[in-house]
Amino acid sequence: MNDDKLLEIKDLTVSIKQEKEMMPVVNGIDITIPDHSIIGLVGESGCGKSMTAKSINHILPSFAKITSGSMLWHEPSGQVCDLVTLKEKDIRKRCGTDVAMIFQEPMTSLNPLMCIGDQIKEVLMIHKLEKSQDRAKARVIEMLDAVEIPDPAVRYRAYPHELSGGMRQRAMIAMAMIANPKLLIADEPTTALDVTTQAQILDLIKKMCETHSMSALIITHNMGIVSTLCDYVYVMYLGTIMEEALTDELFRNPMHPYTRGLLSSIPRMGDNPEFLETLPGNIPVNKEKFRGCRFCLRCSDDIKKCFFEEAPLHKVSDDHYVRCHVAAGKED
């Protein structure tokens, strides 16, 4: 882990409007992204992981709003800037150059009426990174080559529908990388892809992070991806970080019952239990505000305290924090 911070998300709360009331879906979370590292954010659907990612670039849907918190962006010059307070105009300047994003379904995030080369070139022209069209085109072709699209000069003129899912995702990565961003946010980048393509795309993301000395925030529900790609992991449940640790530490010694439940419900190849150990019940519908621990309804070792008081983030070691009364008690 690197000590130089790139982005510090502090106490971020995102709420959505529901029947005239603001309901928090991301609940005061803290995430630190250091330079040159790959951070994982895992959780089940609806836990708020995409909302967190979208709030960084201010692309939240219209019914959602950042209600509190700050996102401190550390410039290489040492300046610190809070992304939350930035105006639309200023955040647009940063989209692509500082923070770039790739999404789950490349077909819906690419423009079907433009050939992929021109779409990628747009990034350079809008940010005025290249004045000459020809030079920009040459850079795009170079980038297409870097993301391992075969025959880049020909593919420059291909439309999204002519490409396979994996090729489209490569084009998305090329678009994200063309302006040399410092942070790449990948929201479920390989969920829509086949397993062999997924392996190639994951390799590519890893390689890109190394060659461009870039950080990445990988949002996924797949623990296998976290294990192979990430340095540090945040586990999210119902809008709160339940546990965070170095990847190896988290898999070796999961402390939170939710993390343990997640890990034991994944079927693993070559290891065939009679039945999978799984968490009982479903994710509660986030209607009423929680007073106690969000997880206590599904937890096997809850104590009375869990129902009334939310656990603070307990420090297990320098690289491991857990939000659980029971786990914290065991340590003491």
Partner: peptide, 23 residues
């Protein structure tokens, strides 16, 4: 299939699955 895959393609598929490292 999992312990001793016979076909090249099966091996390729198996090697592509992102696995949780063994601890």
């Amino acid at each position: 299939i999992y312990s001793n895959p016979g076909h090249e393609y099966t091996k390729y598929l198996l090697s592509s699955v992102p696995r949780i490292k063994e601890y």
